[in-house]
Design a protein around this nucleic acid. Structure first.
Length: 428
DNA sequence: TCTGGGGTCCTAGGACCC
DNA sequence: TCTGGGGTCCTAGGACCC
């Protein structure tokens, strides 16, 4: 059997850990640039604050009820996430194949070693332990497949009082009932596009979908993906646990600007900054990139109605040789900016992508490379170490700019309680 | 005025080869 | 006049996830 363990309102829970005064108060956390609501406490949800809604649109509710608002604080969430996952790994005897970290606030667990009749009690044990050790409350769904476990988890969250945040689907009868209670558009693996199709075909419940033939799913729901979904709903495991720590195949850094930008110098600064960040991620997994891509999005008049479909233009460069050196990547990327940039336009967003990743086998120093290059590699390493230990961009390249007027807004960020000495809570 | 960021997997179709 | 078939690799784009 598989379990999914999911932290309740994760970002809000993290913020509350260090603010006991907010423990039963409504709280929300905003996306980068203070754009959208990306986490809300149960109290905030009950007051009518929507998920993924722009901050300014829900501002009237927030002000009226004096809801606590935080900009996102990823240092804090990343650290708390690590603590939760370590707890789960400890419970599994550090058997790496039994815990798959699925996202910052979710993990799948393989519970095949626990007798079926013990699973409800074992789920309570997991929940209790995580809450004791980290202060974060979790919901747990358990079922024969990942997809059914996700579905169980959803049902557990829907009625926390009744379920105690735990739902276990052991028997076929329990699974059938759960499928009948779930709409297709609430399934893991069914997004907006398929939901519209399915409902047009008259398939509205997960139960109905599970009874469709596999060939039909192959034709109409993205080939093997659709077949796997249907098999999973029927209790046949088709999406296996994944090994941890697989290297990324693509690394991206993209951001909205804090205000519209029209000067090429500023766009280059931003792109150089994003490349520096992406190159750090690249070196952390000991990879080198063979392709650099850049995109910029201009500010269109109709962005209010259709803001996602902005006028995005992008281009990429294949490097003569894969590299992990920041300055080489910056050179390629700023070159692309010159190709893409149009004088007189205003831009609201830019991003970089590193792909065609290969192992950086020259990390130890390449015998045939010029001496100067090995020195630069040493410098990269030193910069990464300093930036990591300071948990900030203490050292950076001149081309990334010093003023950064284009930088995103983050006006309401909490302290980095758990990762910076100067932000540690003081006990009087 | 104000709408996030970072990924993965899969398929179709074109280019190219024999 | 007559113009195959099958394989591989790559890319773009669509769909999904949190």
């Amino acid at each position: 059997m598989k379990a999914i363990v999911d932290c309740n309102n994760f970002y809000c829970s993290c913020e509350r850990l260090f603010r006991p005064d907010l423990w039963s108060k409504p709280v929300v956390v905003l996306s980068n640039n203070d754009g959208c609501i990306i986490s809300r406490s149960d109290e905030a949800r009950k007051l009518g604050v929507g998920m993924a809604i722009p901050y300014f649109q829900t501002r009237h509710i927030i002000d009226k009820h004096d809801i606590a608002v935080f900009s996102s604080n990823y240092h804090l969430y990343g650290d708390m996430s690590w603590r939760v996952m370590e707890t789960l790994r400890t419970l599994m005897g550090h058997d790496a194949s039994r815990v798959e970290v699925y996202s910052v606030d979710e993990a799948f667990m393989d519970l095949d070693h626990i007798p079926l009749e013990d699973l409800p009690a074992y789920a309570r044990h997991i929940k209790y332990t995580v809450e004791q050790w980290t202060g974060i409350s979790v919901s747990i769904g358990i079922a024969p497949t990942k997809t059914l476990a996700k579905l169980a988890n959803r049902l557990a969250k829907k009625n926390k009082q009744l379920s105690g945040c735990i739902k276990v689907l052991l028997t076929e009868e329990e699974q059938r009932l759960a499928l009948q209670q779930t709409r297709v558009d609430d399934l893991w693996g069914v997004g907006r596009a398929y939901a519209v199709k399915l409902i047009n075909w008259g398939i509205t419940s997960a139960w109905e979908l599970s009874n469709m033939p596999e060939e039909w799913a192959h034709t109409n729901m993205g080939g093997v993906t659709g077949v796997r979904l249907i098999r999973e709903l029927r209790g046949l495991p088709s999406i296996e646990m994944e090994e941890e720590l697989v290297d990324k195949k693509m690394i991206a850094t993209t951001r909205m600007f804090g205000r519209p930008v029209s000067e090429i110098r500023e766009i280059k600064e931003a792109v150089a900054t994003y490349i520096s960040r992406a190159a750090e991620k690249l070196r952390r997994q000991h990879s080198a990139a063979g392709t650099v891509s850049v995109f910029i999005v201009s500010k269109e008049q109709d962005h209010l109605t259709d803001f996602k479909r902005g006028a995005t233009i992008s281009n990429h460069t294949t490097l003569p040789r894969a590299t992990s050196l920041t300055h080489e990547l910056i050179k390629a990327a700023t070159g692309l900016v010159e190709v893409l940039y149009e004088h007189g336009k205003e831009y609201k967003k830019a991003g970089v992508m590193l792909s065609s990743l290969v192992p950086d086998d020259s990390i130890q120093g390449n015998l045939f490379a010029p001496h100067a290059e090995n020195e630069r590699r040493g410098l990269m390493h030193a910069i990464d170490n300093i930036n990591f230990s300071m948990r900030d961009d203490s050292v950076k390249f001149g081309s990334s700019g010093m003023n950064k007027n284009w930088k995103m807004r983050q006006e309401l960020r909490s302290s980095r309680y758990s990762t910076r000495w100067e932000d540690l809570r003081k006990v009087q």
